[in-house]
Simulated assay, not measured.
Amino acid sequence: MKRVKVAQGVELEVLDFGGQGPALVFLSGLGNTGHVFDQLAPEFIARHHVYALTRRGFGASSWPDTGYDTPTLGLDVVHALDGLGIQKAVLAGHSMAGDEMTWVGTHLPERVDKLVYLDATDDRAGIAVFLRELSNPPMPTVEFPAGASREAVVAILTRDLGGPYPAHELDQAHEFDPTTGGYVRPRQRPDAVAQMIRGVARVDFSAPRAPVLSLFDGQGFAEWMEAMMSLERTPADFREKARDFLPGLRRDTEAADAALRKQPNWKLVKLENARHYLWLTHPADVVREMNTFLAP
């Protein structure tokens, strides 16, 4: 593990998995660190030099007061490439990282070789607007009871994410009481998630001209909202507004998916019965599809 400077007073954690060949850089989703790819990244070192980044505000990276909007986070990726001496890279991003890599591919296309979206093409700008209008909205992240044991947290993560959770990610993305061993909080700036939600910029996924592989599970924010509506702890205003918001969200999602399928530089692959963390539920499928796509 090392750190690379991306702005004044801001350094990002960089995981260097080694390998030979062009750079492949993994970008984690909301709430995660680069360690979430500890099991996936080594699968590609035969033909690539593989890295993973932890964005600002999370894990071992710097926790500055500002800079959680999409353009700044996108520039963080570019400045990290600069610091690593990488002129051009394959970017592979999960979930919310899709916005950052799309921003890079749109505004600085010369820095991108190929793009791999790991269930990362949802319209986060639309859902962010919806969440910002609520007084106390639930967030699309896994929650744990205060004081839960490490074993209990692992069990919850394995159940909710659908596969074995990387051991180092547990320590890097979560804090446990050193005396009792009980769960304390996420290892992140307390308002980082809220700042990212406020700072989401609408991106055009069809804008980058680089070759694109999109692996997805066939579910999105509509399914998450439906799940939230069924929980007793979900605020009443969320349920009420979600009922009106869901039909339009479904229409927009279907239209966006149809538009991407028409893009000549896009390859879309739905992994049946997968979940949001595709490489945890379907590791062999993700490795196979990525290797085929990344082949010279």
Rank of each mutant, 00 (worst) to 15 (best):
A192K: 10
D191L: 10
R198L: 15
D257G: 15
T253S: 13
R209M: 09
A258I: 07
G199T: 06
F205D: 01
F221D: 00
V203E: 08
D217F: 00
M196K: 03
A201C: 11
P235H: 04
K262Y: 02
A258V: 10
E223Q: 15
T234R: 02
G248V: 02
A227P: 06
A201W: 01
R261C: 03
K241E: 04
A194G: 06
R239F: 05
M229N: 04
G218A: 09
A255D: 12
T253R: 15
G248L: 03
D244V: 10
E254C: 02
E240V: 13
E232K: 13
P247Q: 06
P208G: 09
E240A: 10
K267A: 06
G218C: 13
W224C: 04
G248N: 11
P211C: 11
V212K: 04
S206R: 10
E272Q: 14
A222Y: 03
D244F: 13
A258W: 06
K241S: 06
E223R: 02
E254M: 10
W266I: 08
K267S: 07
A210S: 14
R198D: 14
V212Y: 02
S214D: 13
R209K: 14
P235Y: 05
A201K: 10
A236D: 09
G248Y: 02
V203Y: 03
E226W: 07
M228H: 03
P235F: 03
A259T: 06
E223K: 12
K241L: 07
E223P: 07
L260N: 09
A242S: 11
Q263I: 07
F205Y: 11
I197M: 09
M196D: 00
R198G: 14
A194I: 03
L246Q: 09
M228V: 00
V212M: 08
A227V: 00
